[in-house]
Design a protein around this nucleic acid. Sequence first.
DNA 1: GTATGCGTTAATGTATACATTAAGCAGGAA
DNA 2: TTCCTGCTTAATGTATACATTAACGCATAC
Lengths: 220, 220
Amino acid sequence: MNKPSSTAMAVERLRNLIFKGELPPGSDHLETELAAQLGLSRTPVREALLVLESQGLVDVRPRKGVRIRPISPKDMAEIYDVLTELESLAARRAAEAGHDAEALAPLARSIDNMDRALASEDREAWASADDQFHMELVRLGQNARIASIVQMMADQVRRARQVTLYMRDPPLQSNDDHRRVLDAIASGAPDKAAQLHRAHRDAAKATLIALLETHQLKQL
Amino acid sequence: MNKPSSTAMAVERLRNLIFKGELPPGSDHLETELAAQLGLSRTPVREALLVLESQGLVDVRPRKGVRIRPISPKDMAEIYDVLTELESLAARRAAEAGHDAEALAPLARSIDNMDRALASEDREAWASADDQFHMELVRLGQNARIASIVQMMADQVRRARQVTLYMRDPPLQSNDDHRRVLDAIASGAPDKAAQLHRAHRDAAKATLIALLETHQLKQL
DNA sequence: GTATGCGTTAATGTATACATTAAGCAGGAA
DNA sequence: TTCCTGCTTAATGTATACATTAACGCATAC
């Protein structure tokens, strides 16, 4: 049990504040205030902000405070493009790797979780299981760099999903997609896995962008 | 003309030291020593190291010094996979964007530069022009996130290329590839551009990995 | 001889003091 | 008024002092 450093804690706490919307997108904050809020000195907070900046969550703008980076529809499109490419490759590699049922169990479990969440209309649970699915998928793809980039991009759109979660119909189609991707991976069909996942992601992108336009959400 | 901060300078100087091999892969360095070497206090150096860590160039290992991250053949394969996917998408988007000849001029120029470098057998110049080509390509792809990821990954393999630059035959084939990608982009053929570039990258990956195996280079 | 545990110490983690800088305002000239 | 100029000051950038911690060696017990 390693004691986490103040910097690491600051990163975690600031991330949570951002995701919970307590530090809203577009808002500015002084290092000093954030430090006071977290009960730390500026040093670890500064270091945390540097990390968060490298993860694309904030912009450090000297003398104007750190800005919680807002996500525009264009950003969203960029991010989905990256996710589509890299996750599809991960699906391909996962299929090539010949994972057995045991290795695929977590992925299957995440799909079950989504089913359950849909049945009980628990959208938070669904979102969390969806995260789990995508995380597992890239883990199975066995490329650490892809996994970490995907994680970063997913973080960046997390707020946006939170907002849209209750705006759209329950994503019933989505889980069929997931299951088919899993089948393709289990049966060792790389091309099919990649292609199915790509289609899944493209559909998700289109849905989300349409939602944002409908609701005139210019930034989140 | 903005005065760069010490942290920014430290990032730059450390990057250069790493690329030039003065901080060799796998070597460990104390914050204090690096600070002394750069004539700075620990603070900006620490911040610089945090940035470099987020870019995958070093590992900060408490009490053991920062390690200049070595790249293994497996790392190389991971990185090339990411580059292949993202640059191919960039090529596709560039073709879709309908850039005119003027917009494509820098890309064309980089190809000319490679030709010239090949003719005069100047491999450093070739490498630099090759960088320019890939940088321009992702710029034309109009996805800032792809551009920055590609930049990061390219940095990570820079040392390796430096080593292999003189080990292999002059990359004559390579420039035909580049020209065909440019043509596909210029003529607005997204699928073709993406596919050509993908093939180009796959070939490069295979060549490089083979080289590393032949020479038993386990890490760079 | 080996293993265990404690003390030393060197390195990092954190706080704070200090330097620098640019944003904004006040005051005066055009 | 409007535009410049220089001052003020608040915020960040940097250095340094101080606290904490984990690695290592040495002593001691078995």
